[in-house]
Design a protein around this nucleic acid. Structure first.
Length: 447
RNA sequence: CGGGGCGUAGCGCAGCCUGGUAGCGCAUCUGUUUUGGGAACAGAGGGUCGCAGGUUCGAAUCCUGCCGCCCCGACCA
């Protein structure tokens, strides 16, 4: 709960010249981010709240799937990367740093090496496997060309999970858990993310998928079977330890590929009315890569048949990029239209005539009542003009905008506007807190 | 990394070609009148013109070098 006058919310009426796409434009105009260098952004209070909401949904679904949270540092020693051979292989995308003792360090672009080192020193027996660990941490990749604001930043927040299994069959199970968890994660945010087969590199097999949200401004071209658009999400009580093969089969039997994995003959075999050609944003990527790191880094377990290298997979979600994808999916000319699950506040409360004793009293009471019910409220108690207040609320895109003014108050009514539909209704002042609280709970319960 | 463009007040821009006291709109501050969907009027404040060097009596403007940022391509959570 927050009073607007105390919140740092620097809005821009005009669009900064360097923002080319809607999500970037609205994040700047809505006071969510400010650029500090090419591809590097400060997260202002409003943007930070959304980022934390996204992060929390990702976290809950990881936990549900049985992954365990930890936190690895952003700065890593180069020694680990020499072991895997990637220090030389990674190239200029990796930001290399030298410390005061002339030691080679780097700002982590990913964490396979570090987590492998941690596991190899912490696990000796095959009985300790499987394990799945994740963290949500800032990464840095010195992209040749950062662009589209937070969609392709150099610094970005990523959730990365790593799985460790005794054998390939176990690794497949871990992979399927993350596959299911990702479907739920993106679905809960209101995004339709479609898993698409991805390049598995030298490992081969069918165990790499990109999760792609369809959006006009997406960076990659995608080809999908229309049926995938109507697929329902795995339920909240999905048994992650049960058999996930049918679910995997259901989602992967229909054609879905990005341009680099696209096979036109196969796609054109689908009846024309069922084909879809669109653009998309990659919000997640899962890999099974076997012993690619465990072998060079000598991460093994002892089993009945002697020692074996640990079978690994890694699973990434672009948390900060998701915020851009969400705006791409939910906005109009006036501003953002946040789904309840990721909205920075659930409702905006507008006192349209602050200074008027009746309006002030009613607004303060409603503010307190909503807060008491756990509703997150941004309360505009400023003396600005009505038009500015409404435009501001539309721009930042909170799901409900409650307006208290002399006109409605005369009849004991509060105007409630849904940002998503634009519909307005009047609700009695003495019941509006209950009604709205119930709706917010409802919207959040869809998970 | 190739190609293109930009850098002037918090934001959006003009001025540069043709050198001569730094401009406009929005925002901000003060006052008055307003107040139910981005108010009106009056006044005010705010600038190392990206940085450095050069040419010139004089440089935002011309020349050289550097830095930063954006766009298009090749590459990627």
């Amino acid at each position: 709960p927050m009073r607007l006058s105390r919140f740092h919310l620097p809005l821009l009426k005009e669009t900064p010249g360097d923002a080319q796409i809607a999500s970037h434009r609205l994040m700047l105009r809505g006071g969510m981010i400010r650029q500090q260098a090419a591809g590097i952004y400060a997260w202002l209070p409003l943007g930070h709240r959304v980022l934390k909401k996204i992060e929390q949904i990702v976290r809950e679904e990881q936990n549900r799937a049985g992954a365990v949270e930890m936190l690895m540092p952003t700065i890593q020693p180069a020694t680990l990367w020499h072991e895997s051979g990637r220090y030389d292989a990674y190239g200029p995308e990796m930001l290399r740093i030298t410390d005061r003792h002339d030691r080679e360090m780097l700002y982590g672009p990913t964490n396979e090496e570090m987590i492998t080192a941690i596991i190899r020193s912490g696990i000796k027996s095959y009985k300790a496997l499987p394990q799945m660990l994740y963290h949500i941490q800032w990464k840095f990749r010195d992209e040749v060309r950062p662009r589209f604001g937070v969609m392709r930043g150099r610094e970005f927040l990523m959730k990365d999970t790593y799985s460790f299994d005794v054998d390939a069959a176990g690794a497949r199970k871990s992979y399927l858990k993350m596959f299911a968890a990702y479907l739920r994660t993106f679905g809960r945010m209101g995004l339709k993310a479609i898993p698409m087969r991805a390049d598995t590199g030298p490992i081969g097999g069918d165990l790499s998928h990109e999760f792609i949200v369809l959006a006009e401004t997406g960076e990659s071209e995608v080809f999908v079977h229309k049926d995938l658009m109507d697929m329902s999400l795995p339920p909240a009580d999905l048994d992650f330890d049960g058999d996930l093969e049918p679910l995997f089969e259901q989602w992967t039997s229909k054609y879905a590929a990005t341009d680099e994995m696209h096979t036109p003959e196969e796609f054109e075999a689908i009846p024309e009315g069922e084909r879809m050609n669109a653009r998309g944003i990659e919000v997640g990527h899962i890999f099974y890569f076997g012993t690619k790191y465990s072998e060079p880094m000598n991460a093994y377990v002892e089993g009945p048949d002697g020692k074996s290298f640990i079978e690994m997979g890694s699973y990434g979600v672009g948390v900060s990029r998701l915020m851009g994808a969400l705006i791409a999916a939910y906005h109009d000319e006036e501003g953002c239209k946040w789904p309840m699950a990721v909205a920075p506040f659930h409702v905006g409360l507008v006192n349209i005539k602050s200074g008027d004793a009746d309006c002030d009293t009613a607004s303060e009471r409603l503010y307190a009542a909503l807060e008491a019910q756990g509703v997150e409220v941004l309360y505009d108690e400023t003396g600005d003009r009505a038009g500015e207040k409404f435009a501001r609320m539309d721009l930042i895109g909170l799901p409900y905008i409650l307006t208290i003014g002399p006109r409605g108050l005369k009849d004991g009514q509060v105007e409630v506007k849904s940002r998503a539909t634009g519909e307005k209704e009047n609700i009695p002042l003495d019941s509006v807190a209950d009604v709205i609280a119930a709706r917010v709970k409802d919207a959040l319960a869809i998970s």
